[in-house]
Design a protein around this nucleic acid. Structure first.
Length: 569
RNA sequence: GCGCCUAUAGCUCAACUGGAUAGAGCACCAGGCUUCGAACCUGGGGGUUGGGGAUUCGAGCUCCUCUAGGCGCGCCA
């Protein structure tokens, strides 16, 4: 059964699907014009895998969408779409009430997918789907350098890093950045808090400032400061002391944050310091730009952004009456810079308590002449449960769970998976005890086990069946794959690229996490039903091909999530 | 008071952008290893998708309204 083979190697899975969709598109348009319908809004045929295998391999609801626009009977349209055979690689196409069109592919179609994975390896699934969306810039974490990263920032960093990886995988040129809020009164407060610890250490008992930072990490920093500078700051003028201690604390804390993120496998293309925006005159420049564009006005001695013009519910101050720029002015400078660097589209991932900031940020970007080019995602709250009891956290009391603690307790793999496994906008309940005590039940182990299991089979095959392994790598026998369980795995593999692209476009990394679980499930089912290393050499080779392909895709998907794919567990 | 997020199985969450019988994990019940990794698999119970209304061939998803929880509403960051 090699009649279609040449075609499969020429056209990849997605190319074939696109060609099929295009053909159906043509049929739909032809039908429309035969009815004298020339509407501007074209109905696009979206072809997707069926959820229920009984419905065939692919289906489209395009006939029903068209029926609505054209005021026609959906089943009639579906029938017309399915009327004529002679579609490449299609074994059967039929219309079904109320108006679905179901398509079943020829058997050889699926083995072609395995061949494609083995050819492309780690590149399999990459596409150009989202190429036109870029260049894109994703900003996330953007923490105050006043203490260790907390768990919510762990969530947004996992979210951001995975989203960036997915966008790139789908062909969108994307860069990642974080912004260090190292300016303003909070840095003074940090300096004063550090000084209190410092002076106390040197036996000049000094209370923490009101609303100061009470975390113990400042005691450690104070010790480091004593070691470096001795007692010199006890007698220094306040301004000088603040500047020096602020810088000292900021540098140390940013380094800590960077180290934590590094360990969490989160890396940024660029770190931007708010302080440098102040120092370089970038803020003044941005404000001037906004003024030149006519979007600011003066009132009560302050300079205001006319943000209500762009959908905000009130205007915002850019320059205070005492001449100091606000946080928003710095953000204007930063976003102006992002745009100036040629980014067509910006995504900011903010913490849950910043949703009130969305409107003014969007207003800034619109005022700068790029309406609609900023998208703000919120990483919703993470609450903790310890033994059935919900723990509410307060930063003031220092009762916060840090990202580092989470990594220490549940490991990087589980933490990344856990954070990504849920939709960004859903509130997350993190059951610490369950994660720690019963970590083997975490879904991430299920997926990793699948990968390790395949690795084990391949090791076994290497002991005395090298020739079959070699045949398998070349996909020489994949036409033998036709068991229900085998096809289920292949169907899942085939959907990988589309899943990533759609999930990236929907900003829904959790779908990739879900995908890894589904693929692992399909594989475990295959493993249970089918003996890989059997007596039939061609069949063994075919199934080894499937194993290699599955392992490849599992590893790629886990890589997107920042989760390791172990050879053994 | 205004705005944003959320409400789906006992618990934690999905549902491919409006499609076919709402699905997973955990928990519970009953099974499956003499063999490639049982960290696995098979089957079962469990639902008025918070309430009500609207839109249409079709709504967990869109619109209105009510209820409940979370968060925000500063010339703070």
């Amino acid at each position: 059964m090699h009649h279609g083979r040449a075609n499969y190697s020429v056209m990849g899975y997605h190319e074939q699907l696109d060609a099929l969709a295009t053909e159906l598109d043509t049929r739909l348009r032809r039908l429309a014009s035969s009815w004298g319908i020339h509407e501007g809004q074209a109905i696009e045929v979206a072809l997707g895998p069926t959820r229920d295998p009984n419905h065939g391999d692919f289906a489209t609801a395009a006939a029903m969408a068209a029926a609505k626009a054209w005021k026609r009977d959906p089943f009639e349209i579906a029938t017309a779409l399915a009327s004529d055979g002679s579609l490449q690689s299609v074994a059967q196409i039929q219309a079904v009430r109320p108006g679905f069109v179901n398509i079943t592919m020829v058997p050889g179609f699926w083995s072609g997918v395995v061949r494609e994975v083995l050819q492309r390896g780690a590149d399999y699934g990459k596409s150009h789907e989202l190429e036109s969306r870029g260049p894109m810039l994703v900003e996330f974490v953007s923490a105050n350098p006043t203490g260790p990263l907390v768990v919510v920032q762990g969530r947004s960093s996992a979210l951001g890093a995975t989203l960036v990886a997915m966008l790139r995988f789908a062909g969108c040129q994307t860069s990642s950045e974080t912004y260090v809020n190292d300016a303003g009164t909070q840095l003074d407060l940090l300096a004063d808090s550090l000084y209190a610890r410092y002076a106390t250490l040197l036996e000049r008992e000094t209370p923490l400032p009101v609303d100061g930072y009470a975390g113990e990490y400042l005691i450690d920093l104070a010790q480091a400061l004593v070691a470096r500078d001795g007692e010199q700051w006890l007698s220094a003028p306040q301004d000088e002391r603040r500047a020096a201690l602020g810088r000292f604390a900021r540098d140390a804390i940013v380094e800590q944050q960077r180290a934590d993120l590094d360990r969490f496998r989160v890396h940024f293309d660029r770190w931007t310091s708010e302080a440098t925006l102040h120092d370089s005159g970038a803020i003044e420049k941005a404000v001037q730009e906004l003024r030149a564009l006519g979007h600011v006005y003066e009132k009560e001695g302050a300079l205001w952004l006319h943000s209500t013009e762009f959908g905000d519910d009130k205007d915002r101050v850019l320059i205070r009456s005492d001449g100091r720029p606000t946080y928003l002015a710095a953000d204007a400078a930063y976003h102006a810079d992002k745009l100036r660097r040629g980014n067509k589209y910006l995504i900011d991932i903010l913490g849950p308590d910043h949703h009130g900031y969305i409107a003014r940020l969007s207003a800034i970007v619109a005022a700068l002449g790029h309406p609609g080019s900023l998208e703000v995602l919120l990483a919703q709250h993470v609450t903790f449960k310890r033994g059935g009891e919900t723990v509410s956290m307060s930063k003031r009391a220092g009762d916060v769970v840090t990202l580092r603690e989470v990594m220490d307790q549940v490991g990087v793999d589980a933490a990344r998976f856990f954070f990504i496994n849920r939709a960004p906008e859903s509130h997350l309940v993190f059951d610490m005890e369950l994660a720690v005590e019963q970590s083997a039940k975490n879904p991430v182990y299920y997926v990793q086990y699948g990968h390790a299991r395949i690795a084990s089979i391949l090791r076994k095959a290497g002991e005395g069946r090298e020739h079959l392994l070699e045949r398998a790598r070349q996909a020489l026998d994949v036409d033998r794959l036709n068991d229900k369980a085998e096809i289920a795995v292949i169907r899942r593999i085939a959907d990988f690229g589309r899943t990533v692209a759609r999930a990236a476009d929907a900003r829904a990394p959790h779908r990739v996490a879900e995908y890894t679980h589904a693929l692992a499930t399909d594989f475990h089912g295959f493993y249970t039903d089918c003996v890989v290393l059997g007596d039939d050499e061609a069949l063994t080779s075919a199934r080894l091909s499937l194993c290699i392909a599955t392992k490849t895709v599992l590893a790629s998907a886990l890589d997107l999530l920042g989760v390791s794919a172990p050879e053994t567990m």
